[in-house]
Amino acid sequence: MTSFLLKRLLALVPVLLGASFIVFSIMHLTPGDPAVLLLPQDASAEDIAVMRESLGLNRPFLVQYGSFLQGILRGDLGTSFRSGQPVAGLIMSRLPATMQLAAASLIVAIIIGLVAGIVAAVRQYTLWDGGAMVTALLGVSMPNFWLGLMLILFFSVFWAGRFGSVLLPASGYGTIQHMIMPAIVLGTAHAAFVTRITRSSMLEVLRQDYIRMARAKGLSPFRVVAIHALRNALLPVVTIVGLRFGVLLGGSVVTERIFAWPGIGRLLIDAVRAQDYAVVQGIILTYAIIFSLVTLGVDLIYGLVDPRIRSQYR
């Protein structure tokens, strides 16, 4: 197990190296000269040349990439052109907020999705099933930024107009109340996907011989579903949760922007607008690392769920 983990971690290295190269290249293509951005508008051509020299922008592309990589190994993602602060520090100060939001919405989405999916499968073709499926379909079709605005409209604007104070704050960070709307916005699509995949996976499992066998043993319908079927139905669910975690991270950028949530997503958009490319590339790399680690975690969960996969780990 440990050696498997090490192997998988090592396999991440080339992928993340490649990702860093792509991100660095894209940012290198970007129009706009950081040296110009850093200097006052009336700076002379000489000033600009000096600044370029001091930033190392005159060196060949690959050399610049090399020193960027060296920096990463030391935990140095460069310096913000705008604020002059180290990028790594900026990211670390914002990361907890993003992780909180992602974790909260993920957990809620998984719980809701599993329950709805199981009920829909066990009560196939009933109103429960139909209701869950229609809701889930709306959930996957709904743009989360729109849902965010609608929630603000209802819980903050409408509520304040009607009852004099907001039910939930439209922006900010710090309390559970601040967390509710962003978590719903970010988690809805996820919950909907989990519902759909749980239902279809569960229906597939419920057709299997070992489920018929479990019934023939005299187990109650609840035990058949909760113990024999659910764990077998879980693998596709774990897969989709892992795959769509990337979508969740993407969605968090929008969500953080709507609710002024102080995470790295909002930092990213601010940096994009300010053309602060060092920050942009640092954040994108951070997202890639988080996503890769989550994917690795998903592989480990497979092993926990399924002994057949576990035996391949050794």
Partner: peptide, 24 residues
């Protein structure tokens, strides 16, 4: 496919943000 793996390691929406930033 290794190249695709690398691109897939960057969450899609965020990759698009980077590209649009670079391209305008």
């Amino acid at each position: 496919m290794r190249f695709m793996d690398i691109i897939l390691a960057i969450p899609g929406f965020i990759f698009a943000v980077a590209l649009v930033t670079a391209l305008g």
